[in-house]
Nucleic acid binder design. Structure first.
Length: 469
RNA sequence: GUCCCCUUCGUCUAUCGGUUAGGACGCCAGAUUUUCAUUCUGGAAAGAGGAGUUCGAUUCUCCUAGGGGAUACCA
């Protein structure tokens, strides 16, 4: 039988990082097994579901490269089917109408809590004669769950987990307004969609027991279950915004590469020996549920950042150029022209070596397009002493003699200049960097000369020499 | 309160009864270098506590502590 997994977010906010990891695991598991990965939008909470959130989920999935099979299922559109199952359960004597008011329920819970009993519904309408039903009051439909014995979950990650049935009360299937609850919808949808393997956060573990009772009552086959641990913040507490519980769009905006985020998320709770840098192909090849850990992992920005640097260094120059061009365009207030794009791509090799995010990569490229005369950073300015400027002036003369312009001849010229001035290369390279980039940090100086070209290079050197000489 | 789960360097993790407890990030020191970064070398750094089982426990069992999750007419 082919494996079918699903990711089922509720569209009440962005696609947050924990959800993204759940989606990734489901996706990898399906791809590894040559199965299907489905997407279901759990939009039954009409008050909190928004179209913007649905878009954010689609966008986030696409950005992460998690493609789903078939059309997404919208749970709300299936509400009639859900209600039908609830009614069938009543007809079968496996569910019943309950007329307990909210106040009554609240009282019940308080009392149970005070007595040290689990705060659950006491089943007061379970066996009551329907003739007792009050009029003018819409009932909910509750599931008649077993009172005795235990429900055992056989979880691929958590192992065998046992719940005493008396801990689990008669859950509501259909609300008073006739809409289905999550418990009912999930069970029916997973069944109808042919989901064979449910991989989700372990905050659903207790739900799994109740759902298993329902599935059993319906006589449907049980799906395999895998409840993966949640991601925590750096202090071990629940992931909050401060910790990185942001939408994946926020990670994109912070300059993280999707491949880096994917690699990071994969290693959070899953491992393959000592492997750290794992390509998507390898991930699909290696992914399994056995190697998913059972304990919660803390989110660590430092490691994500390191991975991001690794992936940026490995990335194709044209790809990186396409990522930072929009950022530069926005700063400039106009699209980059073909020549600027060419310069950018040519400089990329030197730039990406020292970037840790797409944002810092964009920033580090700014000097390429700076208008003359350059505005120098304070510590760059300090390098341009009178002496240094005199040397730079003579270097400019020398550069003007060059017949051609490329990295090799530029390097030869600068080294020759250092020789004839009888100074170390650093003595001339540092002021030169300041003059060319306005900064003390940049790619290799010969690369800079090459990328900037003859006219800009000599112009910037003359500017600096004139202003400080 | 009740139920369920978890616990190896600061962090992510390896180990599936016998290891100098390994790797990665971060940190520290050094090397390379025209800056920064990269790269390379080295270093500090861990089995929550207590019982048991065993010739031998990080590994198996139990207890305690700590952490997390669930306890909705939310999903």
């Amino acid at each position: 039988m082919t494996i079918v997994t699903r990711f089922a977010p509720s569209p009440t906010g962005f696609l947050h990082i924990g959800g993204a990891r759940t989606a990734l695991f489901n996706w990898l598991y399906a791809r590894h097994n040559g199965g299907k990965f489905l997407l279901r939008i759990e939009d039954t909470d009409r008050k909190r579901s928004t179209d913007a959130a649905i878009e954010a989920i689609f966008d986030g999935m696409k950005w992460l490269g998690l493609d789903w099979d078939d059309e997404p299922i919208f749970q709300y559109s299936r509400r009639e089917r859900h209600a039908e199952i609830a009614r069938a359960l009543i007809a079968d004597g496996k569910a019943y109408h309950c007329y307990a008011s909210r106040e009554e329920l609240e009282e019940m819970r308080e009392k149970a809590r005070a007595e040290g009993r689990p705060p659950i519904y006491d089943g007061r309408w379970r066996d009551r004669d329907p003739a007792d039903a009050p009029t003018g009051f819409d009932p909910v439909i509750r599931f008649k769950s077993p009172n005795e014995g235990a429900t055992v979950i056989n979880d691929l990650v958590q192992g065998e987990v046992t719940f005493a049935n008396r801990q689990l009360d008669d859950m509501i299937l259909l609300r008073a307004d006739g809409t289905p609850t999550y418990m009912l919808s999930v069970v029916v949808d997973d069944h109808d969609m042919g989901v064979t393997d449910i991989i989700r956060g372990d905050d659903h573990l207790t739900n799994a027991a109740r759902q298993q009772q329902l599935i059993t009552a319906l006589g449907w086959p049980l799906p395999r279950l895998a409840h993966i641990p949640l991601i925590h913040g750096s202090d071990g507490a629940k992931l909050s915004k401060r910790h990185g519980a942001l939408g994946v769009d926020a990670y994109r905006d912070m300059g993280y590469l999707p491949e880096a985020l994917r690699n990071y998320l994969l290693r959070l709770g899953w491992s393959h020996g000592d492997d750290e840098i794992i390509s998507t192909e390898q991930a699909i090849d290696w992914f399994n549920l056995e190697n998913v850990g059972k304990s919660a992992a803390r989110f660590d920005f430092a490691k994500l950042e390191n991975l991001n640097g690794v992936y940026i260094r490995e990335a194709d120059d044209a790809y990186l150029t396409s990522l930072i061009a929009p950022i530069l365009s926005e700063k400039a207030g106009r699209p980059l022209n073909a020549n600027e794009l060419k310069i950018l791509e040519k400089a990329m090799n030197g730039l990406k070596e020292r970037a840790k995010s797409v944002i810092s990569l964009a920033d580090s490229s700014l000097f390429l397009f700076a208008a003359r005369p350059l505005v120098l950073e304070a510590n760059a300015q300090k390098l341009l002493t009178t002496d240094a400027c005199n040397i730079l002036g003579r270097l400019a003369d020398r550069l003007e003699q060059l017949d051609e312009w490329n990295k090799e001849v530029a390097e030869a010229a600068v080294r020759a200049a250092a020789d004839s001035e009888a100074v170390k290369l650093g003595k001339i390279a540092q002021p030169l960097r300041a003059a060319l980039t306005g900064s003390t940090v940049s790619p290799g100086i010969f690369d800079v000369l090459d990328v900037l070209g003859r006219e800009q290079s000599i112009g910037r050197i003359r500017d600096a020499a004139a202003a400080n000489g």
